[in-house]
Amino acid sequence: MTNTKYWKENVRYVLILLFFWFLFSFLFGIILKDFLNQFTVAGFKLGFWFAQQGSIYSFVLIIFIYVHLMNKLDKKYGFDK
Protein backbone atom coordinates (compact mmCIF):
# COMPACT_ATOMS: atom_id res chain seq x y z
CA MET A 1 0.00 0.00 0.00
CA THR A 2 2.81 2.42 0.86
CA ASN A 3 4.16 1.85 -2.64
CA THR A 4 0.88 3.02 -4.20
CA LYS A 5 0.87 6.13 -2.03
CA TYR A 6 4.47 6.87 -2.90
CA TRP A 7 3.64 6.50 -6.58
CA LYS A 8 0.61 8.80 -6.38
CA GLU A 9 2.61 11.56 -4.71
CA ASN A 10 5.36 11.13 -7.29
CA VAL A 11 2.89 11.44 -10.19
CA ARG A 12 1.41 14.57 -8.62
CA TYR A 13 4.88 16.20 -8.48
CA VAL A 14 5.56 15.17 -12.06
CA LEU A 15 2.30 16.69 -13.34
CA ILE A 16 2.82 19.98 -11.49
CA LEU A 17 6.40 20.32 -12.70
CA LEU A 18 5.46 19.43 -16.28
CA PHE A 19 2.92 22.25 -16.15
CA PHE A 20 5.77 24.70 -15.41
CA TRP A 21 7.90 23.07 -18.10
CA PHE A 22 5.13 23.84 -20.60
CA LEU A 23 4.52 27.32 -19.19
CA PHE A 24 8.09 28.63 -19.46
CA SER A 25 8.85 27.17 -22.89
CA PHE A 26 5.78 26.63 -25.06
CA LEU A 27 3.57 29.30 -23.49
CA PHE A 28 6.00 32.15 -22.70
CA GLY A 29 8.56 31.38 -25.41
CA ILE A 30 6.25 30.51 -28.30
CA ILE A 31 2.49 31.03 -27.89
CA LEU A 32 2.67 34.33 -25.98
CA LYS A 33 5.89 35.50 -27.64
CA ASP A 34 4.38 38.41 -29.56
CA PHE A 35 2.49 39.64 -26.52
CA LEU A 36 5.53 39.43 -24.22
CA ASN A 37 7.80 41.10 -26.78
CA GLN A 38 6.07 44.40 -25.95
CA PHE A 39 7.99 44.41 -22.70
CA THR A 40 11.73 44.93 -22.57
CA VAL A 41 13.72 43.66 -19.60
CA ALA A 42 17.49 44.22 -19.30
CA GLY A 43 17.80 44.87 -23.03
CA PHE A 44 15.81 41.80 -24.07
CA LYS A 45 12.35 41.61 -25.54
CA LEU A 46 10.71 39.35 -22.98
CA GLY A 47 9.25 36.72 -25.32
CA PHE A 48 12.54 36.42 -27.18
CA TRP A 49 14.39 36.11 -23.85
CA PHE A 50 12.15 33.26 -22.71
CA ALA A 51 12.67 31.45 -26.01
CA GLN A 52 16.47 31.74 -26.09
CA GLN A 53 17.42 32.00 -22.39
CA GLY A 54 14.71 31.86 -19.73
CA SER A 55 13.21 28.53 -20.77
CA ILE A 56 16.61 26.81 -20.40
CA TYR A 57 17.19 28.22 -16.93
CA SER A 58 13.73 27.09 -15.88
CA PHE A 59 14.38 23.54 -17.17
CA VAL A 60 17.48 23.25 -14.97
CA LEU A 61 15.55 24.59 -12.00
CA ILE A 62 12.62 22.21 -12.57
CA ILE A 63 14.87 19.13 -12.54
CA PHE A 64 16.63 20.19 -9.36
CA ILE A 65 13.30 20.91 -7.64
CA TYR A 66 12.18 17.42 -8.64
CA VAL A 67 15.41 15.92 -7.30
CA HIS A 68 14.85 17.72 -4.01
CA LEU A 69 11.17 16.73 -3.72
CA MET A 70 11.86 13.10 -4.56
CA ASN A 71 14.75 12.80 -2.12
CA LYS A 72 12.37 14.03 0.58
CA LEU A 73 9.70 11.60 -0.59
CA ASP A 74 12.16 8.70 -0.62
CA LYS A 75 13.05 9.51 2.97
CA LYS A 76 9.40 9.73 4.01
CA TYR A 77 8.72 6.23 2.68
CA GLY A 78 12.06 4.76 3.73
CA PHE A 79 13.41 4.28 0.20
CA ASP A 80 16.54 6.28 0.88
CA LYS A 81 18.75 3.48 2.21
Binding site: V14, L17, L18, W21, S25, G29, I30, K33, F48, A51, Q52, S55, I56, F59, I62, I63, Y66, V67
Partner: peptide
Protein backbone atom coordinates in the same frame (compact mmCIF):
# COMPACT_ATOMS: atom_id res chain seq x y z
CA UNK B 1 17.30 34.71 -35.21
CA UNK B 2 14.29 33.94 -33.03
CA UNK B 3 13.55 30.73 -34.95
CA UNK B 4 16.81 29.26 -33.61
CA UNK B 5 14.99 28.87 -30.31
CA UNK B 6 13.58 25.56 -31.55
CA UNK B 7 17.02 24.00 -31.07
CA UNK B 8 17.74 25.79 -27.81
CA UNK B 9 14.49 24.75 -26.16
CA UNK B 10 14.15 21.46 -28.02
CA UNK B 11 17.58 20.11 -27.15
CA UNK B 12 17.37 21.10 -23.47
CA UNK B 13 13.69 20.67 -22.60
CA UNK B 14 13.97 16.95 -23.36
CA UNK B 15 16.03 16.54 -20.20
CA UNK B 16 13.05 17.54 -18.08
CA UNK B 17 11.13 14.66 -19.68
CA UNK B 18 14.09 12.35 -19.17
CA UNK B 19 14.51 13.21 -15.50
CA UNK B 20 10.80 13.15 -14.64
CA UNK B 21 9.45 10.38 -16.86
Amino acid sequence: GYDGAVFLMGWTGGYVLLALL
